[in-house]
Nucleic acid binder design. Structure first.
Length: 420
RNA sequence: GGAGAGAUGGCUGAGCGGUUGAAAGCACCGGUCUUGAAAACCGGCAAAGGGGCAACUCUUUCCUGGGUUCGAAUCCCAGUCUCUCCGCCA
């Protein structure tokens, strides 16, 4: 959520920022509504002040057993005026909130300007593309050939974009998740959390999915939504709070399923388990003081990278341009793994600094010298488990159709060295 | 599902129609003392917003939304959440 004072004082800069993000500049409209709201407020408050004053007089008169009927009649009139103005004020407030709550975060000055993913900037890479003496298969070919990955069964149960994993494939996915959690909790300084997978509206508003992106979410009953990412429950752990400064930085991680309707992705990545309605992910969330968030983003990125390094899988990191970033982010790095079967880099993690954007929506502050300051929030995948499974299958496949088990995962798989 | 209890400032907790924005304690901030720290003592300390160059001033907020009243943290209604007991259940 944007600071209205900032927009008032930096209208041009704000409009430019929105332009960068592909939004139509609207500061003029915002400022106009804001002015109307404040004008209404000023008049209303004068009336209320008068009412309060007279009410006190009434109290005084009554306590002296004097007649107060005249003043009471006067107050009655004021009350009527006030109620009309109150309604008008409410309307203006709602108009303003409707606009502000749907505008994306302002890109950081370190975010490259651009329209779409083609304008993303290469940041760095690790490792190199492996060479194969045979034509590497795609993950679903490997999985289906081994009879450990079944999309037909899943579609019988739930339709398209679901998968059933069997036997060692299912164990492998669990091993990956546990490896990630262990790494982040024992080495990277995150605290493991077990959080609800169903949340109410408020948390989703807090992290920015609502009100604008309800189409991307699944609902459960009238009052709950299935989480599209653990970012939602984890970040909202600090909602409506004034934190003690010594509780910062707060670094938490959680392994959860994620549910996404993929409303805008019809026909995209329909084969395989790259884009599913349900997938699991280990998420990282940091809550820090404003002055630390830039450094924290780098730290988070390194935490996510540490997983792929241990798995020895080649990846590159892209800095997302203003037009390709998510709604709440001011700066985002995507980690893209190399998929030999696919012959392409695919996103496996996205690490974002949201600045105080989510904190404003959640009302999350910390206390510093008797001042309450909005915290900064960051989130990143550490990593998407399903896609890590894909990366392992494609990078560790052998010519006979089997898959080697990465060294760091062996201890989670009874020291087995191949999938079958 | 049945029966009760409750929701007050960063926290604990008083207040239950008229200087109550709210006692007290803790936490926090400033100071005295101390070589430094602790303790002790003194002082300060809710938030959001409006008006004003400013000093300052006003409004709103005691879970949320309605209502009663000249006036509500305090009374009434609805909702949300929490807790206790009983039942059911992974």
């Amino acid at each position: 959520m944007h600071n209205i004072n900032f927009i008032r004082e930096n209208a041009t800069a704000f409009d430019n920022a929105m332009k960068q993000r592909g939004e139509t500049p609207c500061s003029v409209k915002i400022i106009k509504i804001d002015e109307e709201k404040r004008n209404t407020q000023t008049i209303l408050q004068n009336i209320l002040a008068e009412r309060n004053k007279l009410s006190k007089e009434i109290g005084l008169l009554k306590s002296q057993k004097k007649d107060a009927d005249k003043i009471i009649a006067k107050v009655e009139k004021l009350k009527e005026e006030a109620s009309t103005l109150k309604e008008l004020e409410k309307i203006k407030e709602e108009e303003l909130a409707a606009i502000l709550s749907r505008l994306p975060n302002i890109p950081s000055e370190n975010t490259p300007q651009g329209k779409n993913e083609e304008d993303n900037l290469f940041y760095r890479e690790w490792g190199s593309k492996p060479s194969f003496k045979f034509k590497p298969k795609k993950h679903f070919e490997i999985g289906e050939n081994l009879n450990l990955m079944n999309f037909d069964l899943a579609s019988k149960l739930s339709g398209s974009r679901f998968v059933v994993l069997k036997g060692m494939m299912s164990k492998l996915e669990r091993a990956i998740a546990q490896f990630m959690l262990d790494k982040h909790t024992y080495e990277n300084g995150y605290t493991e959390m077990n959080v609800p997978f169903l949340v109410k509206d408020d948390p989703l508003f807090g992290t920015g999915q609502l009100p604008k992106f309800s189409e991307d979410l699944f609902t459960a009953g009238d009052s709950h939504w299935l989480i599209p990412t653990a970012e939602v429950p984890l970040t909202n752990l600090v909602r409506d709070q004034i934190l003690n400064e010594n509780s910062l930085p707060m670094r938490v991680t959680s392994y959860t399923p994620c549910f996404r309707s993929e409303a805008g992705a019809a026909g995209k990545d329909t084969r395989g388990m790259l884009r599913q309605h349900q997938f699991t992910k280990v998420e990282l969330v940091s809550v820090v003081q404003p002055e630390h968030s830039e450094k924290e983003l780098e730290r988070m990125l390194e935490s996510a990278e540490s997983i792929l390094k241990d798995l020895n899988i080649h990846y590159r990191i892209m800095t997302l341009c203003s037009g390709d970033m998510g709604f709440s982010a001011n700066k985002t790095y995507d980690i893209e793994v190399w998929l030999p079967g696919e012959g392409a880099y695919r996103e496996i993690s996205s690490c974002s600094n949201c600045g105080d954007f989510q904190a404003r929506r959640m009302n999350s502050k910390y206390q510093k010298k008797n001042k309450n300051i909005f915290v900064h929030t960051l989130n990143g995948s550490g990593l998407a488990v399903g896609r890590t499974l894909i990366a392992i299958l494609e990078n560790y496949q052998t010519e006979d159709g089997n898959v080697k088990i990465p060294e760091v995962l062996k201890k989670y798989l009874n020291n087995q060295s191949t999938l079958i």
